[in-house]
Design a protein around this nucleic acid. Sequence first.
DNA 1: GTGAAAGCGCTAACAC
DNA 2: GTGTTAGCGCTTTCAC
Lengths: 374, 374
Amino acid sequence: MSPAELFCLDTGRALGLALQTFPRNVPKPSYSLKTATLHDVAREAGVSVSTVSRALNDQPFVRPEVRDRVLLASEALGYRPDVSARSMRTGTTGAVGLIVSDISNPLFAAIAKAADTALSPRGYALMIANSANDADHEAELISAFRQRRLDGLIIAAANEGAAGLGDRIGSFQASVLLDRDVPGSRADAVLSDHGAGLGEAITHLTSLGHRRIALIAGTPSQRGSRVRIETFNAELDRLRIPRDTTLCRSGGMTIEDGYRAVSEILALAEPPTAIIAGNNQLFAGFFGAIRDVGLRIPDDLSVVACEETELTSFHAPPLDVVRRDMDALGRTAAELLLARLATPNRRRRQVVLPTTFEARGSSAVPRSRQRVTT
Amino acid sequence: MSPAELFCLDTGRALGLALQTFPRNVPKPSYSLKTATLHDVAREAGVSVSTVSRALNDQPFVRPEVRDRVLLASEALGYRPDVSARSMRTGTTGAVGLIVSDISNPLFAAIAKAADTALSPRGYALMIANSANDADHEAELISAFRQRRLDGLIIAAANEGAAGLGDRIGSFQASVLLDRDVPGSRADAVLSDHGAGLGEAITHLTSLGHRRIALIAGTPSQRGSRVRIETFNAELDRLRIPRDTTLCRSGGMTIEDGYRAVSEILALAEPPTAIIAGNNQLFAGFFGAIRDVGLRIPDDLSVVACEETELTSFHAPPLDVVRRDMDALGRTAAELLLARLATPNRRRRQVVLPTTFEARGSSAVPRSRQRVTT
DNA sequence: GTGAAAGCGCTAACAC
DNA sequence: GTGTTAGCGCTTTCAC
């Protein structure tokens, strides 16, 4: 065992015990990986390094003839500028961070794809991290990204109200909030107009005769859930439907949370005739729960899902959904970021993207109502 | 317009026309983002920078008392080492690249998540890029990752036979092939044993009486598709079922490719009684196609999907699938990578992960057979 | 044990 | 227009 390892154990800071922001005790890379440097190109072209730098960076004041010679030499040597070295000089890394709760959630994966599609042709690379909706862990991730001097951050923050979040987000040259509203933050944001689609959904359900509608919302510390809860209550008030707090659930965002909430609600003395699932995870939980109980859609229970997924679109019948364009969300986030990087002092922008409700057969006239009308 | 921009247009190399490997003409970051440096910590602790470096990197030969003072000072100043600077010295970035065709494909998203889960606690960050299954674009992406001096590469290469691919992959300190077999490459690999699950599936179908089974495979330039085609043919031979080349389709990997292939196959004079979809994208295409034609599963057509997704597991009836653990795939890839980084000269490893067939109700005795037996 | 100093590869003053 | 040079922040000899 090497002295370094010994020491590591001595101080009790074994690898893997805590989040590392940079790997340690890793062998240096072999020298076979070396590539040509600016110096090499300069020698090859018979000019100085600064001329090479200027020529390669499309700066003025280089004779076209010299430029061509440099380009040729660079080509011949397969020169690729070292990003680390450049970063150290310019303070710019050409990398953008993306923090979401879970990249394997197809919604976030779609956003990541769209953002990358917009960023990649502009020379930016995407660094992705998963917060697991844990605000503390997220803070570490942001810090690690800061340490990597990432040019920008796109983040669907776990907890909008986390202490110091605004500052952490603001510590980047550019940052974009993904459907989040962080008090005190001056960051650009892409927001979804959750209220619009959800309002339509509630109108649809009530027009079918539903009076007991449940909402399975996620954590109110994220804008989507919060807006849904607010809209839900406001719409019920507007429609003069008495609120039943047991029918409006908020809490976690996981499949398990959805399963539990739905199970509890279905066990009520007077269960709802329609359920709105606040996101795709909660919907998956809902789906598992009603399957276990043996309820059919829409015969036994009407349902509206927020977020379109394979599940909602391919279900038979296809499910009523409040949908939004995740692709547009990711693309817009990337565009806001690029615009901010290009013009650091431009005024703050918050882009609101629409949501729409689509009725496709997963909600029907409730049983109770059928009896009354028959 | 600035001179730089003018020049850029002059040379016809406008931004966005070609893949950039690094952004240009971007304003330097504001100085408000500055953080404490090693020097600052040294001054605060009243020692030299080298001592600080040693103390912070858990190196021996630092008096415990001094070490504590350094740690305290570092803490007080909120010191975070600059990754770029460190990279320049060590040649190590603590970042790993992941190249897949499309991160929004839930299979790849799951792999990315699993890899990140394994890498992140070790201090490695994940950089993700999408190749769109375009080998040329992929080559550019690899090159861009090289330029960023990423420590390692995990790649589901678009075309196993692409010229120079092995060298490109080998240009990293560590690289892992994701279910790919690149001739001439000495890279570690995680492979799935596609043949096992598919063999079971074919046995299952034939035991039900199917004789005309179709396989919608993807591109033979990727191991998964290739092995499926080989297994398919071998199994039919073994079972003494005459091969019909029109029933074994290979080509693209997209939903559209799946749709087209299935549509063509169903239009045959003697269509198959069972179809095996080679991956989740092809399955989605299959699904759209049979929906448009109005066929029901399994009454009109038996189906086996390769890869488990929301669609296959929540379908009614749940679909027969050849499944594999994408989580294990991503995790294993990350572990192979870490092991290689830790021990550059360790012998090459190729880990084969199992696939299993699960019959769940989407295949039944074919119509023709029913008539015969009745 | 600790400090001084040399670079890693690059960009940007600053001279010429 | 082009070359020289001073660092960016860090790790690592090499003295002491």
